[in-house]
Simulated assay, not measured.
Amino acid sequence: MRVFIAIDFTNEIKEQLVEIQRYLKNGSKKGSFTHKENFHVTLKFIGDVTPEQLQSIKNTVGIVAQQNDPFELAFSNIGSFPRGNKSIQWIGLEHSSALHHVQSQLEDELEKYGFAKENRPYKPHITFGREVVMETSIQSLQLPTIIDKIYVDSLVVMESTRVNGKLTYSPIHYSSLT
């Protein structure tokens, strides 16, 4: 089973993300764009795990969730990670001490179970598309403004699978923040 820990969104937030993604699609030549139901913020990518490891991950997520209060996130800028002549398109989040604290706690707690800490700085974002080739620059697009904040009240363990060739992220465990 291939898993990661994330923050999931309400349908309303996902609809707003779809609206922005539509503009990016229109300004691109091609790309593999994220399906609406797959929008999320990754806290920790783990990868393939055994059933025993999965139980440790669920327990850890529960412990971290119990030690943190709900918090809000706000969208920031649109950006991209270059990959040759293609890129990964994303929207970032404004700095959140609460988000970074939760993410750091997860890293520390999971390391106790043998999961390696990420060696790159944490850069929270929501991926709009992979292998995107833009026709025009992102800066020249007239993107809609997002106003809503994201209310985070739970952490989720997600499974990543392919269903009929489509990448699918399915929640398999939620833990509520207290």
Rank of each mutant, 00 (worst) to 15 (best):
S140N: 13
L167I: 04
E159K: 13
Y122P: 01
D153S: 09
D148G: 09
T168G: 06
T127I: 11
M158L: 14
Y169R: 04
R120M: 03
V156T: 15
R162H: 14
I146D: 08
S137L: 11
K149S: 15
T145S: 12
L141C: 11
P124W: 00
Y151G: 05
P124S: 04
E131A: 03
Y169I: 07
T136D: 09
E135S: 15
L141E: 01
M158P: 09
R120C: 01
T161Y: 07
R130V: 08
E159G: 07
R120D: 01
V152H: 04
L143F: 14
V133E: 02
T145P: 10
P171M: 02
D153E: 14
F128I: 02
N119H: 13
I146C: 09
I146H: 10
G129K: 02
V133P: 02
V133L: 05
T145N: 12
F115Q: 10
P124T: 01
E131K: 04
S160H: 06
D153H: 07
N164M: 14
L141Q: 06
T136N: 14
L167E: 15
V132Q: 02
R162V: 08
V163W: 02
L167G: 10
F115H: 15
P171K: 07
R120S: 05
P121E: 00
I172P: 00
K149Q: 13
M134Y: 03
T168I: 07
V132F: 02
Y151L: 08
V156P: 09
S170H: 11
G165F: 08
L155Q: 12
T145Y: 13
Q142K: 15
V163D: 14
S140M: 10
P121I: 00
V156Y: 08
S137C: 08
T168C: 07
S154Y: 05
K166V: 10
V157I: 11
S154M: 05
K123M: 02
Y169K: 04
E118F: 01
L155V: 10
K123I: 01
R120G: 02
E135T: 11
G129E: 02
V156R: 08
I150R: 05
F115A: 09
Q142D: 11
I146V: 14
F115L: 14
Q139G: 05
M134K: 00
N164T: 07
I126D: 00
H125I: 00
I150F: 09
P144A: 15
V156M: 13
P171S: 07
E135Q: 15
L143G: 05
P171Q: 02
N119F: 10
P144Y: 11
S140A: 11
Q139W: 10
Q142R: 13
Y151F: 10
K149P: 12
K149Y: 12
Q142W: 08
T168V: 14
V163H: 14
I172H: 01
P144E: 10
S170L: 12
L155G: 12
V133C: 03
G165W: 08
I146T: 12
S140G: 12
T127G: 03
M158K: 11
Y169P: 07
I146S: 13
H125E: 00
L155Y: 07
R130L: 10
S154G: 04
V133M: 03
R120T: 03
V157R: 05
V133R: 00
Q142P: 06
E118C: 00
T168Q: 06
Y122C: 00
F128N: 00
R130H: 13
G129N: 00
P144K: 08
P121L: 03
